[in-house]
Simulated assay, not measured.
Amino acid sequence: MGRLTTHVLDAAHGCPGSAIKVELYRVEGSQLTLVTSALTNSDGRVDAPLLQGDDYRSGVYQLQFNAGDYYRGRGVALPEQPFLDVVVLRFGIDAQQEHYHVPLLISPYSYSTYRGS
């Protein structure tokens, strides 16, 4: 069965990104519909798949990671307008029976992602 999962690694501190708010939206044209939101656990992972079962279908999705709040919570001094406050990843799911894993590697000034397994 297909599912969508994610996790966050903090490259600036060399640890999992814990207690980061993650929001998943379905994108239809210019319309964003919130599907779910969650917090990452102490291992930087969301405890349950963000999509699975009947909710898991082909389409365009957007993950939003509240990186600025995370770094402020760690005591990192960020400018009033941080370079990366909310990291937005827009991606497509095409195969309904595959596992899509979208990891995020962050620092206050950069991020990287890929389709994992």
Rank of each mutant, 00 (worst) to 15 (best):
C15Q: 12
D94R: 06
E23H: 06
L51S: 08
Y100S: 00
Q31L: 07
F83E: 14
P108F: 13
S117Q: 06
I106H: 14
K21Q: 06
G59S: 11
V86E: 09
A12S: 07
S112H: 12
Q97M: 05
Q97D: 11
G116A: 09
N41K: 03
T113L: 05
L51P: 08
Y109W: 09
C15G: 05
S18D: 15
S112F: 13
Q62E: 15
D69P: 00
A19Y: 11
F83Q: 15
T6P: 00
T6H: 02
P16T: 03
A11C: 14
L9E: 12
D47I: 07
C15D: 09
L84H: 07
T40C: 07
E80C: 06
S30K: 13
G29L: 06
D54P: 05
L9K: 04
V22H: 00
Y100T: 02
S117A: 09
Y70N: 12
Y56M: 15
T36L: 02
R72L: 06
L105I: 13
G68S: 14
Y25S: 10
T40F: 08
Q31R: 12
S37M: 00
R26G: 12
A77C: 09
V86C: 03
I106Q: 09
Q81G: 03
R72I: 07
G44K: 10
V76K: 08
H99D: 07
Q31E: 08
E23T: 14
R72D: 00
Y109C: 01
Q64C: 12
G53K: 05
A11F: 13
L105A: 03
G116K: 01
V76W: 08
I20N: 01
S117F: 08
V22L: 00
H99A: 11
